[in-house]
Every structure is written in C-alpha cells, then in structure tokens.
Nucleic acid binder design. Structure first.
Lengths: 351, 351
DNA sequence: CTGAAAGCGCTTACAG
DNA sequence: CTGAAAGCGCTTACAG
C-alpha cells in the first residue's frame, strides 16, 4: 500500500506521538519530554509541542507508555462486595486519593470467595498494577506470594493485627468486640446472645466473635452455641433471629444481644417493636458500623463507628509513598473505632 | 554488560514470554498462540508451553499485549459517587459481568462535578478503555465528542429518555415522579411539598421535579417555590425540612410530601415521630429507591423500586455486545421502576 | 502446525 | 536543549 511499512499491521487509527512530533517539527523524544519532563525543554519548543498536541487532539497511548517506561500508574483494590457500604466508602476514599495523584483504580470484587479474589488479583498483576489493596487477610497464600515475589506494594485493609506479617490499615476487630462486650458486662448483663453475619472466609467476623468469647470468659461466662445466630446480613435475618431468641422462657432469654453489624441490630429492633418489646426496657442490643440511621433510630443504637473512607485514604497514601520510593514498605496503621453509647443498651434488669 | 543489547535499558525483571518460549523450545509466536488461539497449536506443543509458563510463573504483560493487539480488555465506568448505594449496586452488577468476560473495570467518581468526570474520562481513554458507562447525560459535550470520534462504545446509565441522542440504560425519571404524583393526587391530595437532593449538574433530579410539576399542572395545581426544600441527601436534611414544613399553620401545611429519595423520606418520618405526628394520619409521604429498611419501617414507606444491579448488568452486556461486533451500537434499554404502595401515603384527610 | 521478524506507540540512555 | 535510535513485551501477517 502506502510507502514505508513492509508488513501491513494497520495501527489503531488514533493520533500518535509521532504525528505530533512531525507537526511541531521536533523529534519524538522532545514531544515525550515536553510532557513528562517539561523542565528539560525550552519554553518555546514546549509551547509548540503542546499546541500541536492540542490541535491534533492527541491522547497518549498508555500501553505504549507503560511498555517503554515500565510504569502503569494503575493501582488495584479487591474488596468482598460493593453492596456493603463500608467497602464502598473505602473505595471511595482510595479512588479520590489515587485520582489526585494521577493513578487510575482497578476494582475487583471477590464476593467473599477467596479463589475469585485470587483470580482478580492475577488479572490485576497482568495489567501491571503498581500497588494493591485487599480487604482482610483471608486470601490464598498464592496471592501474597505473587505480590511479594513481584515486589508489588500492598496493604491489607479493614482488619488490623499487630502480629500480622502484612501491612494492615484498619482496626482490631477482636479488641472492638471485646470492648463492646465489656461495656455490656459493666451494665450488669450476664446472659448474652449474638446475631452475626457468616464467618466463612471472613477473618474479621471470626475475630469479632473471638473478642466476645474472650471478654465473656474473663467474666467467667460463655455463650452457648445456640445463642449464636449466624446468617445473611439483612434486616430480615436480624428480625427473625430476634424473634427466635424471644420465644424462650423469660429466665432463659438473653438480656444482651450483640450484633455483628448495625443492619442486623436494626432488623432486631424492628422485630422488637412489632412484638411490643422495647430496648433497653426489655433487652439490650448493640450493633457495629454506626450507619447514618442508627443514631436517629428510636431507640438510638449503641454501636461502634469506623471511618471507612479514612481507611481508604490512608491505604492509598501508604501505597503511593512506597511507589514513590519514600519508604520501602507500607506501614501498618491502626484506626480506633469509637464506641457510641446510646439508648439501646442499658442496665440489665431483673434476673 | 552481558551479550546482545547495545543499549542498557534494563527490563522489568519479570519473566517474559520469550523465556517461556526458550524453555519450551518453541518460537514466541507459538507461545502466544498456545494461549490465545489454542486451536492452532498441536496438543503436545500446547502442553509443553503451558508447563513451561507455569514453571516460570509467567504472567503476560498486558501493556505489551495491548500494544501489539490493540485490545486492552479494559472497560470504564464513571459515576457521581460510590457513597450512594444506587451507584454502588450498578457498579457491582457491571463489574461482575465484565469480570466474567475477561474485562477489568476502571472506576472513576466525579463527585457530581462534570469537569472532574471529563478528566476521569480522558484518563480512561488514554488507558485505552474499550467501552465506557457514564451516569446521566449531564456531561460536557467534549466527553461525548471524544467518545464518538474515537468510536468507543458507551452508554448513559440510570436515566432513560427515548429522545436522547445517547444509548440509555435506565428509567424515565420524569415519568416515575409523574406516576408517584398521580398516585397522591388519586388519594385526594391537593397541597404538595417536596424534599429533594440538589439538582445542580443532575439531570435525573431535574427530570424528577419536572415529573411532579407536570402531574400537578395537569390537575390544575402547582407547587410554590417555598414548598420545595432542596439540600443534602441526608436523614438530617429530611428531618429538618419536615420540621420546617410543619411549623406552618395547619391550613397551609402540605398534606402530601414527595421526597427525592428514601433517605430524605426516612429522615422526615423520624422527625415526625419525634414530634408526635404520624403518617398517614397527619400527612402522607413518599420516597424513591426502596431501600431495604423502607419496607420494614413503621409506617412502611410508599416508594419506587429500581433494580440498579440490573442496570449495571444490562449496561455491561450492551457494551460487550458492541465490543464483540455483534451490534454497531449499544441499544437503549428501559427499566421500569415498580411503585411500592405502603402505609406512609394514604387518603388526604380534612381540608 | 510452526517460525522469523516486523510492528504496536511510547521512553530514555547516549551523543552532541 | 535536542535528536537518532534502541528497546519495552507482546501479536500477527507472511511464508513455509
């Protein structure tokens, strides 16, 4: 066909740097420098190049750039699901920070399936993410091996464990529930039940349950298997679990119900209202997350607040610091959940 | 240094296809084919290549692949914010579909700033997204120009307008609120107020308000400026707006309050409860979104339900069909919101 | 079915 | 400050 090419490969059709160079009457090297190291190009030439680029509406091809520079300016995040607002808020914080620093964010959801999480991570590695954030430590070892062997900076978010081999940005789930349990113990409660989301492949949930058990054990108490209701994290399951607990004879009923999150607790409170029971008069209940509605609800829900957006922001900043070479590895950062004491949990009544 | 290279460029350090080829004793072309067009490679060679790749733990470099094939297998989505679950659910649906088809998703948030949305879109174009989904039509024309001139398939989500120049996957916001208003009119209401999220840079909100005005106009009514409270989409603003409306003399009070979403309506219901007012006895109120809590609330909230996850799924499928060449352009798809009639809106009482 | 080699669109060490 | 050219790691038209 036309001059030059011995093989017909047919380009992308997009305007490329070479055309900008031709229009501006400079070499391709100069065009590249004009944008990436403007200090190394004379004012006049720089302007000429920028004008040419604008006139041609040139957008640099990221694949070409990535291949040549071995930089992709891509970061990745893998979360269980966006349908839970705590993760959505994390991603929101992360994406804002990354975007400000010229990074684009790849998003992957594992739906609480570690294998799916690993697949997503592999896809991201293939795409050259320069850093990765994953929720929790519950991932196949291959995931962390792949990250380490390629020296990709990463952080584990949402959970925090000072003994973890990984950089963690989050809070101590065990300590948080230990604290909540102590709060209820100090109010005089001795008969406990819990309504929780599933703990399969979820180290955060397991830590929370451990926090409860340890606090109870320290008080010489324990929670029987039948006192732990575990199921989907919905209002419905919270409501059904509450109703089921309340069918027991009064002296066998729990006086305190610890819920794995606000959603379950709110469901329980709604079921209570329907059956004429009231917190804290007839029982005490606590949540976790401090959803917007929890403080406005009647009764106000005693819960704990975690700044998830902040977790995302801190995670992105740590990763960017490693990428920029400011530090060799992401540093762990502990977030402290704030206990919000409201009306839903009060002094234990009767026996 | 070592043999061969005249210029020291120092590769990425990662295992590359060439090394796999050497180990398997085949050409680089064969390695590539073994993975991308396995039918064109003999069983035995294919196995040898896969073994070598596995042994070396090779992950193909996406930049190299993208540059050579002019395919990135990346799609992009730009939403206002992840902090609103309706968009989080959309992304969730989209990401699942894309992931199943080997696409990775770039996520951008505009925070309701059209310029920021444009910046995110440009960044995505530079990174070679093969398709893009954006929420609503409220974007600078440059955004759609850039998409069209590069022939990047795209869809507008969440809003649907059959007269739109763009492929739309969503629902008719105007029609939805027209319908809700008619529902209230049919219950006998004549004095209306509205509590809404801001309409700046938000065509969906403006359409909703238009739906209300048109339905009222058809009934010979109109809503005065002072009857429209507009502010942040929080429980607090819903509560404060409700309180403010109720300070009016009884005969000037609205009997029906149309809220822009469930969150605002729930805030209003909470404020009502605190002041001893009750729906539908003292007023009627409606929402939009049908949050999980809305049906469980007391009173149950009359609202409309939109399957946002489905919007995301349909959007991704349309885009993939265009990418695959099955159709020239994404087709518009209308989702029909479902009116959920509950207790919060009842017959107008008194005068 | 397989290989040799050109080419995708950039960046950058080197030389001036 | 600027340019010529090699090279980043793949894919693919061509030839056999």
């Amino acid at each position: 066909m036309a001059a030059g090419s011995k093989r017909a490969r047919g380009g992308s059709g997009r305007v490329k740097l070479e055309e900008v160079a031709r229009k501006a009457n400079v070499s391709t090297a100069t065009v590249s420098r004009a944008f990436n190291e403007p200090g190394k190009v004379s004012e006049e030439v720089r302007q000429r190049v920028k004008d040419a680029a604008r006139a041609l509406n040139w957008i640099p091809n990221a694949a070409g750039r990535a291949l040549a520079s071995r930089r992709t300016h891509i970061a990745g995040a893998i979360i269980p699901t966006l349908d839970n607002e705590i993760f959505a808020h994390q991603i929101s914080g992360m994406q804002t920070v990354f975007s400000e620093r010229g990074f684009t964010l790849f998003l992957g959801c594992s739906n609480y399936d570690p294998d799916e999480g690993l697949r997503q991570a592999d896809a991201m590695l293939a795409r050259g993410v320069e850093a990765l954030a994953v929720v929790g430590e519950n991932h196949p070892p291959e995931l962390f091996d792949a990250l380490n062997s390629r020296r990709i900076p990463y952080v584990v978010t949402y959970s925090y464990d000072k003994l973890s081999p990984h950089p963690c940005i989050g809070f101590d789930n065990r300590a948080a529930f230990d604290r909540m349990t102590h709060h209820l113990l100090s109010l005089g409660h001795r008969r406990f039940a819990a309504i929780f989301q599933p703990d399969t492949n979820n180290d955060r949930v397991r830590e929370r349950l451990r926090g409860i058990s340890e606090a109870l054990a320290a008080a010489g108490l324990e929670m029987a298997a039948q006192d732990l209701m575990m199921g989907p994290s919905t209002l419905e399951f919270g409501a059904a679990s509450f109703a089921s607990l309340m069918t027991r004879a009064v002296e066998a009923r729990p006086t305190a119900i610890i819920c794995g999150n606000d959603n379950l607790a709110l469901g329980a409170l709604m079921a209570a209202r329907e059956s004429g029971l009231e917190a804290p008069r007839d029982f005490s209940i606590t949540g976790f997350d401090d959803l917007a509605i929890s403080s406005r609800f009647s009764p106000g829900l005693t819960t704990m607040r975690v700044d998830n957006q902040q977790i995302g922001i801190l995670a992105a900043n740590e990763l960017l610091a490693v990428i920029a070479g400011e530090q060799g590895q992401a540093q762990s950062r502990e977030i402290v959940p704030v206990l919000k004491i409201r009306e839903s949990a009060g002094k234990a009544r009767g026996r």
